[in-house]
C-alpha cells in the first residue's frame, strides 16, 4: 500500500516543566496535498503541535515524520532545511516594519541563495497573486491588517514549500479579510500545497468538507471524511 501521508505523528507527547502535559500521546496523519483544520480552545495545544512540526520545540516522547524526515533524529544544523519545506503563517504576521513589502517577501528567497533577478521575478509574481503588486515599496505599517497578512502569506509561499502551517492566521482580521485569507489558502492548496490551518473560529470549518482535528485536554479527535 502506498503511504500518502506527508505528516505523521505517532504517540507524540509534550510536557512542560514542572508537570504540564500539553499533548498526550497524539496520533495524526495528514496526506500530501490535503487541507485540514486544527481547532480547539485557547491553550488546547494547537500552537504547541505546530511548533513541533517546524521544530521550534521537540516532543517529550513519540515520533514525528514530516515529508519523509524523522524529526527526532534531525540535528540542529538540519532544521533550517526542514523550514524551507515547512512554511509558517502567524496571527501577528511577523513582518519587519522597517523593511518594504518586497524586502519582507524576498527574505525567504535570499536564504536559499537565489540570484537577485530570480528573486525579483518570483516576489513580483507572488505579490501579484495575493493582490499586492501595487504595494511593493510600502512598509507593513502603511498597510491594513488584511494586506499585512497577505504579505506574510506571500513570504510563506514564495519559496514554494510543500507544507504550509497557518497558526490562527485570521485571528486579527475582520470577517471579510478572514474570508479572503481562507480563499487564498484554498488556492494554494489547489496548487498542491499541504495545509494545516489552525483556528478556533468555528465559522471557518463548520460546513467544511475537509477533515477537522480537534484538540482538547492534550488529546486529538478527528471529524470529516
Amino acid at each position: 500500500m502506498i503511504d500518502l501521508s506527508i505528516i505523521r505523528l505517532k504517540g507524540v507527547s509534550k510536557k512542560y516543566p514542572p508537570d504540564n502535559l500539553a499533548l498526550r500521546g497524539l496520533d495524526m496523519d495528514v496526506r500530501k496535498g490535503e487541507f485540514v483544520f486544527l481547532t480547539g480552545a485557547s491553550g488546547s495545544g494547537k500552537s504547541t503541535l505546530l511548533k513541533l512540526l517546524y521544530c521550534a520545540e521537540r516532543p517529550t516522547s513519540g515520533q514525528i515524520i514530516v515529508d519523509g524526515l524523522d524529526l527526532s533524529t534531525l540535528s540542529p544544523s538540519q532544521i533550517p532545511f526542514l523550514r524551507r519545506k515547512v512554511s509558517v503563517i502567524f496571527q501577528d504576521f511577523k513582518l519587519l516594519s522597517s523593511k518594504t513589502v518586497f524586502e519582507n517577501v524576498s527574505i525567504s528567497l535570499e536564504v536559499l541563495g537565489l540570484k537577485r533577478t530570480q528573486i525579483e521575478k518570483r516576489v513580483r509574481q507572488v505579490l501579484e497573486g495575493v493582490g499586492l503588486s501595487g504595494k511593493l515599496g510600502h512598509t507593513p505599517l502603511e498597510l491594513s491588517g488584511g494586506e499585512q497578512q497577505r504579505v506574510a502569506i506571500a513570504r510563506a509561499v514564495v519559496n514554494r514549500p510543500p507544507i504550509i502551517l497557518a497558526d490562527e492566521p485570521t485571528g486579527n482580521l475582520d470577517s471579510d479579510r478572514t474570508d479572503e485569507v481562507l480563499l487564498l489558502m484554498e488556492e494554494l492548496n489547489a496548487r498542491g500545497a499541504t495545509i494545516i490551518f489552525a483556528t478556533h473560529d468555528e465559522r471557518l470549518y463548520k460546513n467544511t468538507h475537509r477533515r477537522v482535528f480537534r484538540l482538547s485536554d492534550g488529546r486529538i479527535e478527528v471529524t470529516g471524511p
Binding site: P80, R84, K94, L95, L96, V111
Partner: peptide, 16 residues
C-alpha cells in the same frame, strides 16, 4: 531580534 526570528523561521542557517 525579530529579524533573526523571522530569518530562522524561513530557513536561514546560523551562518546566514
Amino acid at each position: 531580534e525579530q529579524e533573526m526570528e523571522i530569518l530562522r523561521l524561513v530557513g536561514a542557517t546560523n551562518g546566514f
